[in-house]
Nucleic acid binder design. Structure first.
Lengths: 300, 300
DNA sequence: GATTGCGATTTCATTATTTGAAATACCGTC
DNA sequence: GACGGTATTTCAAATAATGAAATCGCAATC
């Protein structure tokens, strides 16, 4: 975007690393402080922020005041700043934007259609929640729904049973590491080769556990296998001790719109694997059936 | 905080309304833009932001770029900006801060103890989730958990059954309007008079429906009734057509630490009210029993 | 195939805003 | 009562944001 054209007539020397144009530096700093606080469970004092970010304490003081008055952080009586109530408020708004249906995956440009999708039609996650619910109920494991969003795999719904916990570090809105989980792999497996190409060009295959598939060729083989067998397995590829199973959800035209999954302790795979696969496939079939009827479809 | 002392020797005339000191204006503007986008389901273009906020288009352009590169917004191919993946990421961090136990309510200062509570003990919402789950299961209505946080009632857990939807506009992390819902009323009902006094001084009794209690004396009467009967009812006080029932959860010392509730279509109140009250009371009793055993208590 | 309209991007000088060092205030502890 | 660790305030320096206007790009229209 920024053209970084002929240097300013002004000074500009003093900025240490090549600082980006078109960015509001104090705003950027404030956001960086917010993220730092998010990463620190117990909160941070003004001074701590100043030290960690190598910023003048006065700058941090003003930045934190800005965040404070806007509700993005809160100040504990101890002087520690923690995330404030504006965060879940914005998240609620974000969740409502999941209330679109996305066109499937294919040529990287397909998601541009999103712009044309009218807001406020019943979302996939809303329509499929009962199915996730019963999947979670039957299996007594957490159930997940993911779809494409702006060229990324996005986790869009989680239904947890009373006792089992979701995979740590995973949350609604989580994107990425598609190569390392069952949902991502199954969605990629049913994408066009051109799209997979593009996806792999945009994403490094980061190693998350010893089992993560980090070889491009191995991953492509895996995707073929998945497309052939109709579901995907994550054997501790994302998180040690945890396995996932995922299966595709198709719309009336047969396009893969989403994927449904469950996660569970990986040692269950050998004992209950077959049964769990059957449950996931069943839920995915139900979901596809649900999408087949009464599509409030605009672009058909 | 800001002392607004003797006017600067500089100009300072040009700022129209009394602009606050100790605030980073460009950062504040960026946050305002973020909130504007959050309020707009379909997203906004640079120009639209500029018009709505009465800012120079160049300012908006730079602000949006800042938000964009930090992941707080995303740009659709149409040029519309919508909330980005950083929002749910921060929310996940916020949710983890719910992983404290809070001291109860009383004298407005009690929440200052939060600062001393070590992070990472099992949270109320984690411990009580199975109970909420079975409450939701039995009643087939959404179940809620709320507690005190920094002197405010905060919604801390929601368990939705397969088919019923939570109250719109309500989300985990939601605070306030305690006078208008069952959870808030029951928590206030078991707070000390001094605290209620303080709470009422800090919060106007905003009218949300025709039934909202906006008279201070009426609310106090209501709180007395609630404390006497052991549960609270919200009869369309927060949201038209929706009723809630809430009951207190006590710790081993008998202090009210939280409240459990369900919401449902208000017409069910006459038919199933008695039964639903029994369910909520039962869940609250179970929760209190759960808190009674094996408290990982630091300050006792 | 050129034109128009609409909006995004870039430019650049002006000027207000942010910065940073240091002084000061605060609070709990020894 | 002094000390150590922080938070807050001050104020001049100078950096960084602003705003008007020019430019660019795209798509619809003539």
């Amino acid at each position: 975007m920024a053209k970084r054209s002929h240097a300013h007539p002004h000074i500009q020397a003093s900025s240490p690393s090549e600082s980006k144009r078109d960015i509001l530096r104090s705003a950027q700093r404030v956001l960086a402080i917010l993220e730092l606080i998010a990463r620190t469970p117990g909160g941070l004092t003004v001074r701590a922020v100043s030290k960690l970010l190598q910023l003048n304490i006065s700058t941090c003081y003003h930045s934190l005041n800005t965040l404070l008055t806007a509700g993005y952080v809160e100040r504990l009586p101890s002087g520690h700043y923690v995330l404030g109530p504006q965060i879940p408020y914005l998240n609620d708004a974000y969740l409502r934007t999941l209330t679109h249906d996305w066109p499937a995956t294919d040529p990287q440009e397909s998601w541009q259609a999103v712009a044309r999708v009218p807001a406020h039609r019943p979302s996939l996650s809303q329509r499929l929640r009962p199915i996730l619910h019963s999947l979670s109920e039957r299996s007594q494991e957490p159930a997940y729904l993911a779809g494409w969003r702006y060229g990324e795999v996005e986790l869009q719904a989680i239904v947890e049973p009373a006792h089992a916990e979701r995979i740590p570090g995973i949350y609604i809105g989580y994107r990425g590491q598609a190569h390392a989980h069952a949902l991502g792999k199954v969605l990629l497996a049913y994408s066009s080769p051109a799209f997979v190409e593009d996806y792999l060009a945009r994403h490094a295959l980061i190693r998350l556990t010893q089992r993560t598939i980090v070889e491009r060729t191995l991953l492509c083989e895996e995707l073929h296998t998945i497309a052939h067998q109709g579901y995907s397995i994550d054997r501790e590829e994302l998180h040690a001790d945890t396995a996932c199973l995922a299966a595709p959800v198709r719309d009336a035209q047969g396009r893969v719109m989403a994927a449904i999954a469950i996660s569970f302790r990986s040692d269950l795979l050998s004992r209950r694997g077959e049964w769990l696969i059957a449950q996931v496939l069943r839920a995915a079939r139900q979901a596809s059936a649900e999408l087949r009827l009464s599509r409030p479809c605009e672009q058909c």
